[in-house]
Nucleic acid binder design. Structure first.
Length: 628
RNA sequence: GCCCGUGUAGCUCAGUGGUAGAGCGCACCCUUGGUAAGGGUGAGGUCACGAGUUCAACUCUCGUCACGGGCUCCA
C-alpha cells in the first residue's frame, strides 16, 4: 500500500481490536449453530469460521432455511446472548471425543476430527456449563420452544480450535445480524454434499454494525448494474445471452475515450499496436497448450470446410504468431506489442455478474518480447505505465502481490531465478511495497498482480504482469544473438485494466456514476428557463461543441425545477441555466450535481459565469482529469 | 454447473384459478415557468419461453432461458 486515506465510515469500523472482533465473530458462529440445532434438531453441523465482516456456519439439513427461519434463529441467538452463558474451553482425548461425536451422529465433525494431525491438541468449546447436565441436542419439538419463556439451559459444544469470548454476554445483542442463506459445498468441493450456509455480520458496538450496514447500502447505491441501466451506459440482454455486453451510446462514448487514452499512452510508452483475428485454426491452440490446459473455459470449436476453428479465449498465441512471421535480431528487442483484444471464454452460467464476469470481453493486452537482461527494465516500464494510467483514472492506491514458482512448473531453476529477481528488482526500483505469495505463480512463470483501491475502500484486482517461459518454448521462438546463435526471447504478458468491461464497471462504482469531466459522456447540459431562451441556448451549445465539449440542450419543455432534477439524476457534471438574465448578460448560471444524486458531494451553485470563464474552468478540469 | 430466490408495460414494482394495475418514462394538449417532480389526455403488456393439470392458467406442476445471493473458478 502506497499511502492511506480512509473514509470516515471506515474509521469507525477500523476502531475495533482485530483480536476481539475475531473472538466475537467466532463465538457468534457457535451461537448461530447452537440456535439452529435448538430450533431444528435434525440439522447437522459442519464448520463456522469468521470472515472479514462477520461469520458464517454451514449446515446440512434436508429442507432449506427460509427468511422467516432466519428471523427465528436470530431471536434465538439473542436469547442465548442475553442468558450470559459461559464459554468453556476443554482439551479432550481423541478417542473420547470421537465416541461422543459418534453418539451425536455428526458425520462432518467426525471428518474434521479425523483430519486433525495426531500431534495437535484437540479442543472443544462449550456454550453453557458442561456441569449443567443437559444434552447438546434437546429432544424438543422446535414448535414447542417459546423464545420468551423457555430459557436456553441446554449445553452446546463444538469441536473448535478457538479462540472465543468468555461468555455469550460479551456480544452486544444489537451489534450482530444474520444476513443471508446460500448454498456451499462441503469443503468447497462440488463433488461433495451441498450445504446451507447462513451468513451473519458482527461487530463490537451497534454503531459499528450501523456503519457497516451503511457501507453496504453505499455499495448498493453504486452498483454498476443499476447505474448502467439508469445512466443508459450498457445492457446485457436475455435475447442475446448471458455475459454478452451491449454498449449503449453513452457507455460507448466513454469506452471510446478510454480506448483513445489507452492507445496514446501506449504509443507514448514505446508500444506498437496490433489487431488480430477473433478465431483461428484449432491447431494453433493445440500448439499453445490451451486445448490441454484451458479447454473447460473455451467455447466449442467451429467447423469450417472440415477444419476446426477456435474462438479466441486469449490473445497471446496471435502475438506469438506475429513475432514468428520472420526472424528477429537481438538488436530489435524489446518488442512491445499491445492490442485491445476481444476474447470469449465459457463461464458457467452461475458465475456471470454484470460487467465484472462476462463471456465476451476486451483485454488491454500486451506482450513484450525481450532479452533476459532486459526483463527488469521492461517490468519497471510496465509498472510506471500502470501507475500513470491507473492514477489518471482516479486510482492512486495499490496493493501489490508477487507470486513465485509453484511446485508444478516449467522452465529451469536459472530462468525462474532470473525472472523472479527481475520482478523484485523492478518493484524495489519503483519503491513499491509488496506481499510475496510463495508458490502462487503460474506454472509458466512468476507474476506481479496489482489491486486498486476504490472510493469506498474496496480492492479490485485489475493489472497483472506475468513472465512466460512456456509459450516461447512451445512455439520455438528465437532471435539471432550477437554471436549468430539462436536464443529464446523472454515473453512478458501484461494487462493494466485487465478487462475493459470489468474496469468500466469498477469506474462506474468508484465514481458512483458522476464521472470526471474528461470521461463524462455528456459534459454540460444547458437548461432554458423558457422557450424564449432556447435559441440562445442552442447558440451557446454550438460554441461548446466547437471547443470540443460534449454538450446538450434540454429540449423537454419542462419547468426549470424538473430540468434540474432530470440533469442531477443523470449525473451531468455541469448544468448551465439560461434565463432572461443570462441572455442579457451573456452568461450561464452554473450548478454542479450533489445532494441526493451524489450524497458525498455538496450541490454547488456557482452563480452566473461569463462563457469564457466556464470554458476555461472546464478545460482545467479536463486537463487535471478531475471532477468539475 | 450446483443450492436458494426472482422473472407482470421502456424502467421500478403491486396483483388474482375466471384472459391485467400503479408510479416514472413516452406522445399530444394546456401552462412560458428561475435552481430536485405544473396540469390534462392518450398510446403501450402472448404476465420470460415451452409443455402439463384444469371447463378455465399470468396464477398450480415440470422443463428451458435469464437475472439476483452464494459455492467453485477467474479479467
Amino acid at each position: 500500500m502506497m499511502s492511506s486515506t480512509q473514509s470516515p465510515q471506515k474509521n469507525v469500523l477500523a476502531q475495533s481490536d482485530p483480536q476481539t472482533l475475531l473472538r466475537i465473530r467466532h463465538t457468534c458462529a457457535h451461537i448461530l449453530a447452537m440456535a439452529v440445532q435448538t430450533l431444528f434438531p435434525e440439522t447437522k453441523v459442519t464448520i463456522g469460521p469468521w470472515t472479514e465482516t462477520g461469520f458464517y456456519y454451514d449446515f446440512d439439513r434436508p429442507t432449506a432455511f427460509t427468511p422467516e427461519n432466519l428471523e427465528k434463529i436470530e431471536a434465538e441467538m439473542r436469547r442465548i446472548i442475553r442468558a450470559n452463558l459461559p464459554i468453556i474451553r476443554e482439551v479432550v482425548e481423541r478417542d473420547d471425543i470421537k465416541a461422543e461425536i459418534a453418539a451425536l451422529q455428526e458425520p462432518y465433525k467426525q471428518e474434521i476430527l479425523d483430519s486433525i494431525p495426531a500431534d495437535e491438541p484437540i479442543t472443544r468449546y462449550f456454550i453453557g456449563s458442561p456441569d449443567a447436565g443437559f444434552t447438546s441436542h434437546p429432544e424438543v419439538e422446535p414448535s414447542l420452544i417459546d423464545p420468551v419463556t423457555v430459557p436456553p439451559t441446554a449445553v452446546w459444544w463444538d469441536l473448535c480450535a478457538g479462540p472465543h469470548l468468555n461468555s455469550t454476554k460479551e456480544i452486544h445483542p444489537k451489534a450482530f445480524a444474520l444476513e443471508s442463506v446460500a448454498g456451499a459445498y462441503w469443503r468447497g468441493d462440488e463433488t461433495r454434499p451441498q450445504l446451507q450456509r447462513i451468513y451473519g455480520t458482527a461487530w463490537e458496538t451497534p454503531e459499528q454494525l450501523k456503519a457497516y450496514l451503511k457501507q453496504k447500502e453505499e455499495a448498493k447505491r453504486r452498483d454498476h448494474r443499476k447505474l448502467g441501466q439508469e445512466l443508459e451506459l450498457f445492457s446485457i440482454q436475455e435475447d442475446a445471452g448471458g455475459g454478452l455486453v451491449f454498449w449503449h451510446p453513452k457507455g460507448a462514448r466513454m469506452r471510446l475515450l478510454i480506448e483513445d487514452y489507452w492507445r496514446s499512452a501506449h504509443l507514448a510508452a514505446g508500444y506498437d499496436l496490433l489487431y488480430t483475428p477473433h478465431v483461428a485454426n484449432l491447431e494453433l491452440w493445440k500448439t499453445s497448450g490451451h486445448v490441454d490446459f484451458y479447454r473447460e473455459n473455451m467455447f466449442d470449436p467451429i467447423e469450417i470446410e472440415s477444419q476446426e476453428y477456435q474462438l479466441k479465449p486469449m490473445n497471446c498465441p496471435f502475438h506469438v504468431l506475429t513475432y514468428q512471421n520472420r526472424l528477429h535480431s537481438y538488436r530489435e528487442l524489446p518488442l512491445r506489442w499491445a492490442e485491445l483484444g476481444t476474447v470469449y471464454r465459457y463461464e458457467r452460467s452461475g458465475v456471470l455478474h454484470g460487467l465484472m464476469r462476462v463471456r465476451g470481453f476486451t483485454q488491454d493486452d500486451a506482450h513484450i518480447f525481450c532479452l533476459p537482461e532486459q526483463v527488469a527494465q521492461e517490468i519497471l516500464g510496465v509498472l510506471n505505465l500502470t501507475e500513470k494510467i491507473l492514477s489518471d483514472f482516479g486510482f492512486p492506491e495499490y496493493e501489490v502481490n508477487l507470486s513465485t514458482r509453484p511446485a508444478k512448473s516449467v522452465g529451469t531453476d536459472d530462468i525462474w531465478q532470473l525472472a523472479t529477481d527481475a520482478l523484485v528488482e523492478a518493484l524495489n526500483t519503483k519503491g513499491w511495497d509488496y506481499v510475496t505469495d510463495e508458490g502462487g505463480g503460474a506454472f509458466y512463470g512468476p507474476k506481479i498482480d496489482i489491486k486498486i483501491k476504490d472510493a469506498i475502500g474496496r480492492l479490485w484486482q485489475c493489472s497483472t504482469i506475468q513472465v512466460d517461459f512456456n509459450l516461447p518454448e512451445r512455439f520455438d521462438m528465437n532471435y539471432v544473438a550477437a554471436d549468430g546463435s539462436r536464443q529464446r526471447p523472454i515473453m512478458i504478458h501484461r494487462a493494466i485494466f485487465g478487462s475493459l468491461e470489468r474496469f468500466f464497471g469498477i469506474l462506474v462504482e468508484n465514481y458512483a456514476g458522476l464521472f470526471p469531466l474528461w470521461l463524462a459522456p455528456v459534459q454540460i447540459r444547458l437548461l432554458p428557463v423558457s422557450d424564449a431562451q432556447r435559441s440562445y441556448a442552442e447558440t451557446v451549445a454550438q460554441q461548446f461543441q466547437e471547443q470540443g465539449f460534449r454538450v446538450e440542450v434540454d429540449a423537454s419543455g419542462d419547468r426549470l425545477g424538473k430540468q434540474i432534477r432530470t440533469a442531477e439524476l443523470e449525473k451531468i457534471p455541469v448544468i448551465g441555466v439560461v434565463g432572461k438574465r443570462e441572455v442579457e448578460q451573456q452568461t450561464l448560471s452554473v450548478r454542479v450535481p450533489g445532494g441526493k444524486a451524489m450524497p458525498t458531494r455538496q450541490a454547488g451553485d456557482l452563480g452566473a459565469l461569463p462563457l469564457s470563464d466556464l470554458l476555461e474552468k472546464m478545460q482545467v478540469a479536463i486537463a487535471h482529469k478531475s471532477l468539475f
